[in-house]
Design a protein around this nucleic acid. Sequence first.
DNA 1: CTGTTAGCGCCTTCAG
DNA 2: CTGAAGGCGCTAACAG
Lengths: 316, 316
Amino acid sequence: MCLLYRVHFISDPTKQRVIEAARKLGYVPNLSARQLRNREDHRRITLALLWPMDTRASTIVRFLNGIQEYIITEEEMEIELLIEPYGEVGIQSVKGLEVPNRFNGAILAHTTKADEQLMDGFSPSVPIVQFHRYSSKYSYVNANNFQAGEKVAEHFIQNRHERIAILYPEVSSEALEQRLAGIVGRLEKDLQTEYIQKTCTFTENGGYQAVRELIRDAYHPTALICISDHVAMGALSALHDHGISVPDQCEVMGFDNQEFSKFTIPKLSTVHLPVEKMAKRATQILVKSILNPMCPVTQEVFDLEIIHRSTTKQGI
Amino acid sequence: MCLLYRVHFISDPTKQRVIEAARKLGYVPNLSARQLRNREDHRRITLALLWPMDTRASTIVRFLNGIQEYIITEEEMEIELLIEPYGEVGIQSVKGLEVPNRFNGAILAHTTKADEQLMDGFSPSVPIVQFHRYSSKYSYVNANNFQAGEKVAEHFIQNRHERIAILYPEVSSEALEQRLAGIVGRLEKDLQTEYIQKTCTFTENGGYQAVRELIRDAYHPTALICISDHVAMGALSALHDHGISVPDQCEVMGFDNQEFSKFTIPKLSTVHLPVEKMAKRATQILVKSILNPMCPVTQEVFDLEIIHRSTTKQGI
DNA sequence: CTGTTAGCGCCTTCAG
DNA sequence: CTGAAGGCGCTAACAG
């Protein structure tokens, strides 16, 4: 019992009555007032993590791991992390961007096009760092997804593939579109290589179904570029079910380098995305901007590398 | 710029000087004061999610998904979610449990034995709901892991296995220990069945290495019980690398029913853990306790069912 | 146009 | 033992 928790001089029955009344009125102690009163939060700041709670949520674990390292080591400030999982409505539902009293700063992750337009239009009341996307206006930490896409395409061109299928999600983000653009851009330059784009949901099941449909339609890809490891895992499963051997009959490439992708069968070749490092950096930049409102916009891009494991063939 | 953001009558150079001074002093606006002043937070409560940022973090995504559904539909209150990822120090590092001004209530997930002892000892300043563990003192939402362990063991006894290996993690939680206890308890009742316990880290790599070591030591299991799907995935990978066919030469069972386990090769049989439902329920109970401090302790246990896919054999 | 102040809700302290 | 009041930091409103 926290209400009345140090009031000794009130008799128990009276306490009961007060508590009962409080319950009826729906009274909840006001945290802001308590914090203000106790003023032990002088060096505390609250960061918000605006993350879409759709299928792209899985990297949030890696993000949190990356961020935590920073939070713990940061001694100057005490950092509090607010999760704002927003749904399909988009970022507009997050109140704290308009009002400056919810959090001191925010990291926006995987925003959609609509979100981005919204963000361009108005000026948020607190510093913002965009995660995994470019921005002309705000600080960001991004990865060179376009170049990574080119590298992946390059690999498959080298291996002289006849039929390349690109599995990419309908609900997209800039990062994923950049990957696609990089892949397609490079493939287009090479006239010998044929490819098709196949949309799917951004899940294992999406990859599975997409491959099934391709095969049903008598399209037998010799290479599969999956826009995420999750999709790739589903694709591997479907290829296996159809008796197509990887990488002999079909090479497969993923994106992200999730923990599990070392343990698929065969072990998945993928593009390493340094989520943890990016998260740490994004948090650093945000905290700096909060402490120094005049801090210039900081924009960083991480280079990405292909990790060849067992679903691709090298040096043929 | 949020500082001075509506003060129009101050000249720009002066603004600059003020901001510069603020920066030098390390001034950060006090959110509590702002919130208090603007009092539009009458019906807002803050929930904390105390989650260990170790390898058990992966279910946090499912948890967040489950919780979000509730948060959005709950109209009476505006619910804010604070993540307190605590490290190896344990729960003691979370200040808000002692002081009643950080959050209105907390969900403790995957606490360790040390944490549990600590919690038994003192009375937290806010309502608590334990997630995925029993408690004599607090509300909890748990799953019947013991019974699930028994069911799994029962299956393998039915299939008359000669060598069963149980892979379970060193850093454990009550839930995992219950699984183990259920498995071992049931196996012990059957004198014909031999089994061994093998510890491993709680990751895909842990499962992979454990199986490698077993085989190196000339122990060829005919059944593998993995205490989580992640471990199972690693185990499957290792079995594949050693040319051991699943389920013919070795059956494999996981726990949790993570999204990916439908897409391993072969498709993983596992025990479904309804994380989303449990998360939603835990949040409901917590909110109720916050709104009604006299609310009695609520304790709920979900039953678990085996999902047979392709890594086990049924009806032989 | 500029400076002052009241009061948000809470809890500690001090006065009666 | 009980009751009243001050002040945490902020900003809208008001007074000069």
